[in-house]
Amino acid sequence: DVAKAIINLAVYGKAQNRSYERLALLVDTVGPRLSGSKNLEKAIQIMYQNLQQDGLEKVHLEPVRIPHWERGEESAVMLEPRIHKIAILGLGSSIGTPPEGITAEVLVVTSFDELQRRASEARGKIVVYNQPYINYSRTVQYRTQGAVEAAKVGALASLIRSVASFSIYSPHTGIQEYQDGVPKIPTACITVEDAEMMSRMASHGIKIVIQLKMGAKTYPDTDSFNTVAEITGSKYPEQVVLVSGHLDSWDVGQGAMDDGGGAFISWEALSLIKDLGLRPKRTLRLVLWTAEEQGGVGAFQYYQLHKVNISNYSLVMESDAGTFLPTGLQFTGSEKARAIMEEVMSLLQPLNITQVLSHGEGTDINFWIQAGVPGASLLDDLYKYFFFHHSHGDTMTVMDPKQMNVAAAVWAVVSYVVADMEEMLPRS
C-alpha cells in the first residue's frame, strides 16, 4: 500500500502543509530570486542546507553561468492627452533608455499584422501592443518578439500589454529577446487597462505622448548553481527518475507560485518517500534549476553535463505551471510508456486524480524529451495562474497548503512508482 501510505502522510498525516510552510519560510525571508541576484544565491545556499538537514543523499551544487540583468529605476508617464502615471515592468534583457528618457508619440496596434500594415507610421514612435489574450503560448510571442518587430519598423521603444488572463492594473514581466542585426530598443509591459485605454484613445484619433524612463542594465554573466539531492536507488542506482522545479524567479512578488511551489513539492516528494522509509530500485533525483526564467539556462547546463548518461534516465518530471489542485499528469512518451503511466496514475484514484494527458514538455525538461526520454509535467487548475504570473501578486497569499499537499502526493506517488518498477519506461 505504498501509494496509500504516501497519500495519507502527505494529505492527512504529519507531513500535511509541510511544503507550504517550508516554502513560506524561504520566500518570506529571501524574497524574489532574479537570475544573477544575491537573493537567488542566498536561496540556493539555504536550500543546500535544508536538503542536507532533511537527510537526503548526495546533496550538491552544480555550477552554472547565468545572465545578470537588473531593471533599475523605471517609470512611464502619459503626457498627452492628459497626465497619467503608467504602471510598467521592464522586460528581462531589455536595454535602458537614456537618462532623460524617451518622449515620443504612441502608435497602438493589436497585432504584428497591423504593425506591418502601419509600418510607415511607426518610425520615431513608441509602439504600444494591445494584443488580445488568447492563451499564454500564443500571446507571449508579443512579449518575446514585440521589441524586435517594433524596431524593424523604426520604433524608439515598445510597450506591451501584459500577458495576463485577468488584471487589476497589474503589469506582468518576463523575458524578451533581441535579434542580431535589429536595433535594440527599450521594452516594458504595461497593464491590460492602460493598453486598452490607449487603444480606445487612438481609435478616436487622439494623439498620445509618453515619456518612458528605464534604468535597465545587463551585467556580465555570473556564477550560480543547480541544486541537486537524491534518494539513491537500491537496485539500479545508476538509473534515474528526475523530479524538478526552478528556484529562480522574477524580481517582483515572491516567486511563490512561479516556481516556488513546483520546487517545494519536488523536495516534498523526496521527503515523503524518505519519511516512509522507502527506497526505490532506481535513484530519485531532485533538481532545483537555476535561471529558468532566462530561458532554461540551468537546465541546459545540466543536460550538457549529464546527457552522456541519457540511457539511464527513465523519466524526467517538472512542475512549473502552479501547484493548485492537480487534475492529472501531462505526459510525453511512447504509447507503451503512456499505457504504463495510466496504470501508475490509477494508484491516485483515492484522490480522484487519474488523468494522463498529452504535452508533458516543460522548459527545464525539454532537452531530455527531445532526445527521447519520457517526460511529465504536473497539470493543475490553471484558472488563477496567469492572474499572478510574473507580477507583484505572485506571493504566498496565492498558495494553498491543502492543494500543495495533494500536488506533493501526486508527485511523490508517480516518481516513486516509476523509480521502483523493475524496468525503465520504454522509449519510442
Binding site: R282, Y416, E422, E423, P426
Partner: peptide
Amino acid sequence: KAICKNGISKRTFEEIKEEIASCG
C-alpha cells in the same frame, strides 16, 4: 534485466500492470 533502452521489454504489460497495482 532492468534496462529497456529500445522499448523492448521482456515482461508483458500484464506483468507490469500487476507490479504497479501492487503499489496501490
